[in-house]
Simulated assay, not measured.
Amino acid sequence: MGIIKVNNIRVFAYHGCLEEEAKIGSEYRVDVTVKANLKKSAKTDELADTIDYVHLNYIVKEEMAIRSKLLEEVAQRILDRFFRELRTLKKATVSVAKINPPIGGNVEEVVVILTKKR
């Protein structure tokens, strides 16, 4: 078993329960950790034998572009796509952080973290 991480994916998106959030948008950071059997790719040196982190990044960016009220829903959509499209995936964790959320205080970020296993 091995782990691949894609950290600090920066995205500008329009998630949130407030109408203002749908209009002005916010900055987000997404971190991804996936577990899969990487023994074959470690031997073959072939992209087809591993989890392509370019594909992970692509899925994150596509799903972040779809507006949601809750970060939980966005994170779940990302996980669901990972497991639909990446057959060798065993476990994945997705962290979605809203940078400087509009919650009436000096808050750096709010983060939702979800994990899914096959």
Rank of each mutant, 00 (worst) to 15 (best):
L79P: 13
N8C: 10
K69W: 07
V60D: 01
R87P: 10
A92N: 07
V32I: 15
L71R: 05
V107F: 14
I24D: 06
E72P: 08
T88G: 12
P101K: 03
K69T: 09
V30S: 12
E108F: 02
P102Q: 06
K35A: 11
V111K: 10
I78L: 05
M64Q: 05
L71K: 05
E73K: 08
V34R: 09
V60P: 03
A13I: 09
R77D: 02
I66F: 07
E20Q: 14
K90N: 12
T93S: 14
A36G: 03
A65S: 05
N106D: 02
C17P: 03
S41W: 08
G25N: 12
L89I: 06
G25H: 14
S41M: 05
Y14G: 11
I3L: 14
F12T: 13
A97T: 10
H15F: 02
P101A: 02
P102M: 06
F12H: 11
V32A: 04
T115N: 03
L71W: 02
L89Q: 04
V32K: 08
I99R: 04
E27F: 00
S95G: 08
T50E: 03
V110I: 11
K35M: 13
A48Q: 03
G105P: 02
G104Q: 03
V11E: 10
F82H: 12
V111S: 04
A42W: 08
V74I: 14
E108R: 10
L114K: 05
R87Q: 13
V60E: 02
K39Q: 15
N57S: 15
S41R: 03
G2F: 10
K98H: 14
Y53C: 10
I99A: 01
I113S: 12
I51L: 07
V54Y: 11
G16H: 08
V11K: 04
I9Y: 14
I99F: 00
S41D: 06
E62P: 01
H15V: 05
N8W: 01
E108P: 00
H15K: 08
I51K: 04
D31A: 11
K91N: 06
F12Y: 14
K35I: 09
K23T: 12
R118G: 11
G25V: 15
L114A: 02
H15I: 05
S95V: 07
